[in-house]
Simulated assay, not measured.
Amino acid sequence: MKRDVFQAIADPTRRAILVLLTAQAMTPNALAEQFQMSRQAVSKHIRILRECEVVEQQKAGREIYYHSRLDKMKEIDRWLEQFRQHWDSRFKQLDQVLTNLKAKQNET
């Protein structure tokens, strides 16, 4: 089963891992220290993040470091943009209605 980036952000723990990895590359042990769960549980989340291609691993000696792939996160941003544009338009309409109501109140 092919996973997509939306599965990566569907879980709060994976979102938290992504936030940490955006700041710096980390090992599984370093990540596990940030959560109240086992290294194995964190590794399962990392596996899903890798399958979603939002995290890559890089070997440095005997350690494996994970870092986020911001280019894949842009896929989420592009999808959300359609909603941003919609809501921006709606808020502009609301601003206009409120401005018109305020102008009418000032006239009376």
Rank of each mutant, 00 (worst) to 15 (best):
A103M: 05
Q24K: 15
K59H: 02
K44T: 09
K2S: 07
Q58C: 01
R47T: 10
D4K: 05
L101W: 00
Q36G: 04
E107F: 04
T13G: 02
E56F: 03
K92L: 10
D77C: 08
F35G: 14
T13L: 09
V5C: 11
T22Y: 11
K59R: 13
G61W: 01
L31E: 01
A25S: 15
I76Y: 08
H86G: 07
T27S: 12
R3L: 13
R84A: 13
I46V: 03
Y65S: 01
Q36W: 02
K72A: 11
R15C: 15
F83D: 15
A23F: 04
F35R: 13
A8C: 10
E81K: 12
A8I: 08
Q57A: 02
D95I: 01
S89F: 02
K2E: 10
A41G: 08
E107P: 01
H86S: 13
K2V: 10
A10L: 13
R50I: 04
Q57V: 00
A103L: 08
A8M: 09
I48C: 12
L98I: 01
H86Q: 15
W79Q: 14
M1H: 07
L21T: 07
N106R: 04
K74E: 10
K102T: 12
R78F: 09
Q93N: 11
A16S: 15
T22W: 04
R15H: 05
E51F: 05
H67E: 00
R84V: 14
Q85W: 02
V54E: 04
K59W: 00
Q58G: 00
Q82H: 12
L31I: 01
Q105N: 09
F35V: 12
S68M: 07
N106F: 00
T13R: 08
Q96L: 11
L98K: 06
Q34P: 08
I9P: 13
V55L: 02
S68N: 05
D88S: 14
N106T: 03
R14L: 14
E51N: 08
